[in-house]
C-alpha cells in the first residue's frame, strides 16, 4: 500500500472536569487516499471524539491528548494558530449531524460559503460567489442561485444538510469528516444524501471518514469499516469482512441485534448489559462484562488488534476472536 493520506497512531484523549473520562484509549488507523472509512459505534464509543480530535476541536483547557496524527505531511498535533485555521476547512473539513446548529442563523447560506472561501484563498468576492453557486449546484440543490440568498431556517432539513456539504467542500479538502450526517433525516432523504456523498467522493477523489451508529448507512458509503467500543477500535476490515464474517463478539452482537430478518416469533438476540462508563473502564477488554466468551484473561489484559485468517487487513482486538487469527 502506498503512503496513507491520514495516519493516526496511539491516540489517547482524556477529558477533565467534574468527571474524568477516557474517551479514546490508544486508537490507531490509516486512511488511504480516496478511501471511505465507516466508523461504527454506539453512543460513548468514541467515534465522534475521534473525528473532533482530527480537527483539534476539543477545548484545550479540559482535554489531554497524546499520540500522533499525520494528514499528508502535516503533523496535526503540532498545529497552532494560523496554520491550524488553514488546516481546518482547507485540508480537512467536517459535516456535522445537525446543520441547523452548524450554520449561523443570521447570515445567508451563500454568505457563509463565500466567507469560508475568502478566509482560505486569495480570490475576489465575485469569484468566491461563483464558486459557491457551483458548489450548491454540485450538491444538487434545486434553484441554487435563489437558495444562495436563503437563510438556513428557510431550508428543509435535507436541503440544509446538502448546503452543509457544499460548505465543507468549499476549499476542496482532501479529507472529509462526516459526523452522523444523515441521522436526523427521514429515510427517504437519508438515502439521497448517502448517494450524493458517494458520488461526490468518487468525483473529487476525497478520503472520507463517515461516522454513524447505523450499520446500513455505513455499508452504503464505506469501503472499509472500523467498529469502536469503549474508546478503542475493536475490529476493522473491508465492509464485506466485517458485516459478513465478524470476528469480534461485539460486532457479531451488534449485527445480530440490528433487526433485519429475524423471524417475528423469535426474541431478538440482544447484547446484555449497558455500554461501559468511560470514567471507570475495566482493566481488561471493555466488552468483557457483556461478553459470553469472556475469560479471566479478558478481564485483566486489553487485547491488541491482530490480523484474522483469510485477510491480513481484517483485524480484531479479542482474546477469543470468532475467526482464527492469522498467526496463531
Amino acid at each position: 500500500m502506498s503512503k496513507p493520506l491520514l495516519s493516526v497512531r496511539d491516540l489517547n484523549v482524556r477529558f477533565h472536569g467534574e468527571r474524568n473520562a477516557s474517551a479514546l484509549n490508544g486508537v490507531s488507523f490509516d486512511l488511504a487516499e480516496g478511501e471511505v472509512l465507516g466508523l461504527l459505534g454506539e453512543s460513548g464509543s468514541g467515534k465522534s471524539v475521534t473525528l473532533r480530535t482530527l480537527l483539534k476541536l476539543h477545548p484545550p483547557a479540559r482535554t489531554r491528548m497524546s499520540g500522533h496524527i499525520r494528514v499528508g505531511d502535516t503533523d496535526v498535533m503540532a498545529l497552532q494558530g494560523r496554520a491550524l485555521e488553514q488546516y481546518r476547512g482547507g485540508m480537512a473539513s467536517m459535516v456535522f449531524q445537525d446543520p441547523g446548529l452548524a450554520f449561523d442563523p443570521l447570515y445567508t447560506v451563500g454568505e457563509q460559503i463565500v466567507e469560508t472561501i475568502l478566509a482560505h484563498e486569495r480570490i475576489g468576492a465575485d469569484a468566491a460567489r461563483a464558486r459557491a453557486l457551483e458548489l450548491m449546484e454540485r450538491v444538487q440543490i434545486p434553484q441554487a442561485r435563489r437558495r444562495l440568498d436563503a437563510y438556513p431556517f428557510e431550508m428543509s432539513g435535507g436541503m440544509r444538510q446538502r448546503a452543509m456539504i457544499a460548505l465543507a467542500l468549499a476549499c476542496r479538502p482532501k479529507l472529509l469528516l462526516a459526523d452522523e450526517p444523515t441521522t436526523a433525516l427521514d429515510a427517504t432523504v437519508q438515502i439521497q444524501v448517502l448517494l450524493l456523498l458517494r458520488e461526490l467522493q468518487r468525483e473529487l477523489g476525497m478520503s472520507v471518514i463517515f461516522v454513524t451508529h447505523d450499520i446500513g448507512a455505513a455499508v452504503e458509503v464505506s469501503d472499509r469499516l472500523a467498529v469502536m467500543y469503549g474508546g478503542r477500535i475493536v475490529e476493522e476490515g473491508s465492509v464485506a469482512d466485517v458485516v459478513q464474517r465478524p470476528a469480534h463478539p461485539y460486532t457479531a452482537g451488534l449485527l445480530a441485534s440490528t433487526v433485519v430478518d429475524v423471524p417475528r416469533d423469535q426474541a431478538l438476540p440482544a447484547i446484555p448489559g449497558a455500554p461501559p462508563d468511560l470514567a471507570a473502564l475495566p482493566p481488561g477488554c471493555a466488552f468483557a462484562p457483556r461478553c459470553a466468551h469472556a475469560s479471566a484473561q479478558c478481564r485483566e489484559q486489553v487485547p491488541a488488534l491482530q490480523a484474522m485468517e483469510g485477510d491480513e487487513r481484517h483485524r480484531a482486538a479479542c482474546w477469543h476472536a470468532l475467526l482464527q487469527p492469522a498467526h496463531a
Binding site: S156, T188, I191, L195, G216, V260
Partner: peptide, 25 residues
Amino acid sequence: SALLSAVPSMDPANRTQRSPLAGDP
C-alpha cells in the same frame, strides 16, 4: 414501495443505486 426501498441495504455487494424519491417530504 418508495418508502420501503429507501432503507439502506445491508449487503455491500448490492448497494442502493438510485434514490426512490427526490426532494423532501
